[in-house]
Design a protein around this nucleic acid. Sequence first.
DNA 1: CCAGAAAATTAGTTACCCCTAAAACAAGAT
DNA 2: ATCTTGTTTTAGGGGTAACTAATTTTCTGG
Lengths: 224, 224
Amino acid sequence: MRDQFTHAIEDYLKTIYDLSLTHGRASTTQIAEVLNVAPASVTGMIKRLAGAKPPLVEYQKHRGVVLTQDGKIAAIEIIRHHRLLELFLQETLGYSWDEVHAEADRLEHVISEDFEERIARVLGDPTHNPHGDPIPTRDLEIPPHATLCLSHLRPNDRGTIRRVRDTDPELLRFLSDHGIVPPASFTVTGYTPFDGNLTLQINGRDQAVVLGMRITQQIYVERE
Amino acid sequence: MRDQFTHAIEDYLKTIYDLSLTHGRASTTQIAEVLNVAPASVTGMIKRLAGAKPPLVEYQKHRGVVLTQDGKIAAIEIIRHHRLLELFLQETLGYSWDEVHAEADRLEHVISEDFEERIARVLGDPTHNPHGDPIPTRDLEIPPHATLCLSHLRPNDRGTIRRVRDTDPELLRFLSDHGIVPPASFTVTGYTPFDGNLTLQINGRDQAVVLGMRITQQIYVERE
DNA sequence: CCAGAAAATTAGTTACCCCTAAAACAAGAT
DNA sequence: ATCTTGTTTTAGGGGTAACTAATTTTCTGG
Ligand SMILES: [Mn+2]
Ligand SMILES: [Mn+2]
Ligand SMILES: [Mn+2]
Ligand SMILES: [Mn+2]
């Protein structure tokens, strides 16, 4: 059913999927930034994806791409690999949550469907990875997950940490040092307009923390 | 210390190492056969390996290659990855011994040194993989291992199965069906000249098995 | 020693995936 | 409507790693 795509193609599909979730469409520059390649390289690859049989993206010159149904299926397959692997690395090999992403990013392209199936069973068909991202099911449905960004909360709001974006290991270490890890619950105790700083009191912690928007935009929560 | 080489280079080094063990030198055609590429492709790669800084092989036109010290170190690093992975897949994920080789062949190129270290610890610094091949140590020494080929034994010889070559999953299934798995002990009860067939009585088994040279040459034993 | 066979190399292509530099385009500001 | 800026595409090129076909070298048997 799979393993027809190169590592590069898989990384592009994954990136386009991700960008489409927040922006509806993925632009050349956005993709280039995420993948750390030149915009010209993205244009080249985009054309290959659009010209594939069947096409994996729908491409309109100068206005970016969206995934076709085929492209979306391929992307979600890889995301399932990635997130299952992240949990597996943490649970079975004792990785910390800031280490799992980079390792999974390489493994995701080479494991077999058999490997995928085996770790899914060992882990008991989990629904979320260590960062709280939903793990697509075997038939590629996305489990329910938090979409409310912490930056939108205001003083006296209470809630639970559900997801943290996983791209920056340093941020992840900072957050776990302060107890900001799913499923910690918290109360917002302060807000500064203009700079958007939020003060967060994590339940069971002495010290409150002040978080800038750079950080609060990377965190998704469930409001009580 | 590593991860400077492409997947292709790593596969060539591994293959050359393996061929050198039995043939002293690796010829273009032998490498081509193992890696399933055209001889012309091997010539091309060999030149790159010989021209690398530092050189990874010593190349004499028309008479194959041997690994340099640098090439050997790189090869053994990958072989350590490969064999640790094989054991890990069997022990932790329940793979059967005919399934581990193919999966490890892809994973070996992408795991980090950290991953290597973690599975080595989980497995208790093992010395042999499921097929009985020695697993190079952290400092790349090769643990002792059987080098006597079953095909050299004769009737009334007794011994223990120690290693089986791992390239053919079908053969591996056949062998485990007949109890020919390290560390089974056995007695040779028959030998046919000309075709080299051996009859083997595995201890604790009802039926003796007749094995052709195609098979007995893939099996290494320790004689009593 | 030499002819034919086998092995290896060279020559010429191709696909993939990246790059830089230059040109073209889109869209908001004037 | 035009300018300007930022975005995107085109053009041209490089490294890797494979291929086929043609040629050269080595080996081997008579
Ligand atoms: Mn991740
Ligand atoms: Mn990746
Ligand atoms: Mn193996
Ligand atoms: Mn390999």
